[in-house]
Structures are given as C-alpha cells and as structure tokens.
Design a protein around this nucleic acid. Sequence first.
RNA 1: GGAUCCAUAGCUCAGUUGGUUAGAGCGUUCGGUUUACAUCCGAAAGGUCGUAGGUUCGAGUCCUACUGGAUCCACCA
Length: 748
Amino acid sequence: MSMDKTYNHKEYEEKIYKLWEKSGAFTPKIDPKKRPFTIVLPPPNASGKMHTGNVLMIATEDLLVRWKRMQGYSALWLPGTDHAGFETQITFERKLKEEEKSRFDFDRQTLYKKIWDFVQENKHLIEDQIRSMGASVDWTRNKFTLDLDILESVVKTFNKMYEDGLVYRADYMVNYCPICGTTFADLEVKHKERKDPLYYIKYGPFVLATVRPETKFGDTAVAVHPNDKRYKGYIGKEIEVDGLLGKFKLKVIADKFVDPKFGTGVVKVTPAHDKNDYEAGKRHTLEVKPVIGLDGRLNEKAGKYVGLTISEAREKVVEDLKKYGLLEKIDENYTHTVAVCYKGGHDIEPTILPNWFIKVESLKKPAHDVVIKGKVKIYPKWQEVKYHRWMESMMDWPISRQVVWGIRIPAWYSFNENPNLQITFLNKDKVTITGRLADLLKNSSLDDIREGLQTLIAPGDAKVVISDKNPGKDYLQETDTFDTWFSSGQWPLVTLGYPESNDFKYFYPTDVLETGWEILRLWVSRMIMFGIYLTGKPPFKDVYLHGIVRALDGRKMSKSLGNVINPEEYQAEFGTDALRMGLISGTANGKDFNFPADKVIAFRNFANKIWNMARFMLIMFDKYKEDVPFYSAELENKLKKEDKDVLKELENTIKKVNTSLEKYRFTDAAESIYHFMWDKLASEYLEETKDREDKEVSLSVLRYVYFNSLKLLHPFMPFITEVIWQELKDLRKYPNQLLITSSWPKIS
RNA sequence: GGAUCCAUAGCUCAGUUGGUUAGAGCGUUCGGUUUACAUCCGAAAGGUCGUAGGUUCGAGUCCUACUGGAUCCACCA
C-alpha cells in the first residue's frame, strides 16, 4: 500500500507510456479472425510544435482507437508527420535571415538538404509530444511525407494522372506573393479590410479611380458599363491618353463587370495584374501586358520606373502624376478588401504564370456522390453542407508551388527542344545568373546549370516529358514542387503501402478520418477524390470534424493577439488526462469553442477522486481480502437493493457510453462516466459499503463496478486509469493484464 | 453581395425527433478536522432561455421579422 494522498501525474505518465509501447499494444497484427479498425493520424508539421488543436485531435482519435481496441478490433492508429511545404520553408528562411543569409544564396538541392537536416533535427520534438499525450499510435509504422516510398508513390500517381489526361499546363492568373516568391491557391488567400488612398487620375477624356496607379503601364483597355449613358459615345473607339511615359492609345470596351456607381464609372483594364481584368481581357481579346516581375519589381515595360518595388513605384507614380497635373483628386477614406497570403499576410500580386493543373471534373463527381449516398458520413451532420457546396463549385486545381521544400514535380525539359527556358542559377563563383537557357549555355555548361539551379520557368508551350527518372542527359527537371495537399491527399493510401502491401489489403479503407473542419475542403475532399480514383473506394467511412479551439477571450488564437494557449503548461500543471478530458468535453457537437480551462481543473479533481477511491479499496481489501469473492452470478441472491441499483446504473452507463461514442457524442459519454463514478459510485454506493455488515457482498460489487468503470474511463483518461489498474494488481483476477488491452465492459 | 452558425445562471457551455419543477463545470454565499479524497463533504443563492410576433393542447426546441456576435465563400478597379 503505497499510494499517495493525491495523484501525481508527473510520477507516472512516462512510465506508463513505455509500459504500453513495450507491451506491443500499439502494434496491431494482421489477423483474419479480427476485424480491423484504422485511423490515420492527420500528420502534424514535422518541424512544428503541439498546439491545442493537435491535443484535441489526439485526444479524440486516441479515445476512438482505445475503445475499439478494447472491443477486440485489430486497431491501427498510424502516425506520421508532414513536411508542410510553405510553413517549414518560411520558418527555415527566418533562421537563415538570422545568419544574414537567404534562400537565394543556395542552389535548390543544397537548400533542400539544409531544410531536410533542419527538419530531421526537430522532428522528434513533435513526436515526443505525441507520446507525452499518451497517443496509442503504432510507431513501428511511423511515416513522413517525404519518405522515399511515399515520394515514389505520389510521383506514380502523378504519372498515372498524366497518362489519363488529367494533368495539364496552362497560363493562369495566379495569386502570386512576391515576398514568399510563390503562388497560393485561392483557398490560401485571405481577404483583409484596409484603408488605401483612391486616386482619381486623368485618362485622356476620362477621369478614373484606382488604388493601383503603378499598374497603369500594363493597361490595355479602358472599360465602361454597356448601359452607362455618360460614355456611350466612346464604346469601341480608341482614345488617346497622356501618360507618364508619353502619349498612347487605348480601346474603350463595354463590359458588365464595371460598376457604374463606383468612382467615375470608368475602369482601366490591366489583364496581367487583376483577376477581373484578366477575365475581361479574355472576353475582349485584349493584350496581356505584365509590368511586374516575379521579384515584385516593375519590369522594363514601366520605362523609367523599372526596378522599383510595387510600393515604391506607387509613390513615385503618384508624385509624377501630380507633377504633370494628371491627378485630379485623392480619396483618402476609401476602404476595400485586399488579398493577402495566409502565411505572411503579404499583398498578393495577381500574375500570369504557366502552372500545372489537375482536371477535377471526372474526380469530383464520384467524390461528391459517396457523401450524398452516405457511403462516407460526415459528423456532425451540419458540416456536410460545406462539403456539398465545395464539390459543386470546385474548379481545376493548380498543384505547382514555387518552393523547394516539397516533392519535385517529375517533369523534364530537354534543353534542345526548349531553348527559351527561363533559368536562374548560381554559377561556380556563387553569382546568381538569370536568363534564357540557350544564352546561358554560351558561358556555362548544362551540368553547372543543373548543379546550381535555383528556379526554372518553362514557357507555356514548352516540350515536356513526364517521368520518375531523368530521361536523358540534356534534361532539366521542373523546379516547382507539388502542393502539399497533392501528396497529403494520398496519405491514407501511401502510409498503408498502397497498392500491394498486406497492411493495405487488411487495413484499407480506414474507418474514421478525424480532423478540424477548416481543412474539409483542402484535405478531406482531396483524399476522397484520390481514394476513389486509385482504388475505387473512398479512403474512410466516417469523417468526424472537431471544432477549432479558440483562446480564452473567444477569439482565434494568434501570435499577434498574444492569446495563444500553450497546452504544455496545462499538461504539466493538471496532467495529460485532465487536459485531454477537458478538451473532449469542451464541446458537444463539433462547434468551435473557447479553451475550457475550468473543465481541465474539474477533471484534474476528478482524477484525484478516482485515485482516492482506489486508495479506499486498497485499505478495505487489505482488511477483508480473503473473505471477498470475485463478483459472479452466484452472488446474485445475496444482493441488496443498493447493490442492484449500482449494478443497474453501471449497465446504463455502459449503454450510454456505447451509443454516445457510436454517434461521436464524446461529451455525453464523458459526462455520464463522470457522474456515475462521482455521484453514484463514490458519493453513494461507496459510502454505503462502510456501514455494510456483509462486506463479502458489498466489496465484491464495489470492486466489480469500479473496475468496469475504469475500463469505461480508460479511453478518455488513459494514464490514471492504467496507473490505478496496476496499483490494484493484487485485487484483480489476472494481475498481469494491462488495462489498455483488457476487454470492454459487456452488457449482460 | 451569397451563405452558415450562435444568442440559455456571474463565466464557459449542454439541452439529440417540441412534452412533467430548464442542466453541468467553474465561480459566489453559508456550514463542515465523519479514519479514500479540503483537488473533499453538506447546503444555498442565481435564468421572464436576445427582442417582437406566429404555429400548437403544449416551444429553450418549429416558422417569420428584427437586434447583436462569429465564421465561411465570392468580390470591390
């Protein structure tokens, strides 16, 4: 008898985790006699740190897996980490900056190697945190999104899609961030409200309003609304404009996208740097004239303004417009929303670039159907609407990213056929050189270029070979990498060793995909598309979407607001079990919720409560052990009313927990165990046993009910329940048994 | 502009198909050294369920409008 008065989680958690892992409980066998139950862990960022969302995710999935494992399933929870393209590269570049370096100081393979090392150094941090959370994941099957076998599999899928005619390359108006040097998907662009000056500038016979005077060098038309009487006479005509670079002529077009009420009802059209204008340009076959380069600076078409950044150019252009009397007025109180990239919050510069695309038309229909037909169920049900709306409106998917840290697209350009490749590379003297490939080859060898290659931009009509290997010695590989979601979209397949492995055959399709609702479209929809495309089967049966854990003030956690909650502090102070249970019961139906600090405390208290129940049992059994039989049917005729009551209530609790978990109503399950154990078992029944003469009956019932309660509670609070299970070894029929692999309580 | 969700005790939230005195945790007040636990025990206070209508024998729960808040999508030259 050596239990302290209070439960000290720090003393036990690590030990217990090792006990579980060593026992092999985390590693399910392929057993034809058992039914498989599979969850693939949504891989956290390999170089990141645990945040509250991860904790909720792990708590929820561990709960499901432990429950199924105890029910006798061959339960696999497959862990892994994500290379997290952008995020990691940005983190790494911040590190480089501290060393007064930047990504431009390295060729792409050196940079890749450096990031690889950086991630490998940090990967164990997140993995250790997953361990400390008590996650019963199978570490023997641990994966990383850039593991060789994963990489091969992802590339193979791309090849197959290419052969199936689902891949194409096209010029596209992309959301380009000049600071990050890469494009962002529409979903990754955020809209921010901001006040910017609105300039009214003279434009030939017109005055028009714009916030972006610096793009005027790329204007190829002026547009008005077709019904706008003020300008009817001009439609279809050419006007002459006095510009900062001299006189030029522009066509006046009529298009409904113009809002006659905005400004003066006249709009300059810049197809190369505005989405609307680009679309309008296509309708009216306007010239597309880019004036801003990928470095975010004005190019030679901007004449004397060449080389200025966007903001510098805006300032200078406005100044000059004033000087030449071309600026009519400035509205300083104009508020509009601007597109910014979701990583750094930098302004997005819409830009035309050739990009790799996936045709989604044939993929999205079946992926939509499986949800409509209920082959894939989304919980909570009300989130399903978001899925339908997305599947209805999904457009072709741009999958290329201009970052190094990712899976390189297996496309190859031969130098013979593509002399116009735009190349940037570091030569042997570490000098950055940019130019047409054919020109560069006059001074450098192809090998030097390949060695020092940083980026390659192939024209839209480039001749390309898709191959997982270098097709010949005069080829250069595409420098773009896959969108992270392209590879993680195949995660349930590739982690299980698709298509041939025994694991794949046994564990696929998986059972539950559990994740936050914010990546329903980015990730879940893509997994369903890939799953059906490659195997004919959706990759999971149920999707459970948890809410977002917000800060204590009800707002989203963000570094800039300074309201981020570090889960580790709660974990250290109140214990992992309390933190997990607090989060699990913080929300009932997948809605967003504020971090439930008071519930964490409540469950710490609860942990202590059941701890002390165990102490009480030790004391009692120390006294009466020999006289107390294990509970069985033979005792039934000796039972008193309170015995029958507590047994009945245990049954009800088991039922309640089962049905709640089947419906993913975790809070309901948690609350019913909590109230049963505290209010019924501890406050009522246990008190009654103190006065009972027939200790052999009451203690037998108490032990039976208590142990079954521990089992029910185990998936929610795994550490303390297992600790008690071990502490009470001598009170159990099978002292060597672990709670984690014990059997789930049955209803008689 | 399109859409979704939310509004219940001081705080954070439950309340699943409309059905008896609306619940929990935390907090508050009062009282407890009963040998498992003060991270405990006992008791109490506290809600016209955002506002206004409607459907119904009956509405926190369904419908309409409004007010306030959150979020998503699209877009703003």
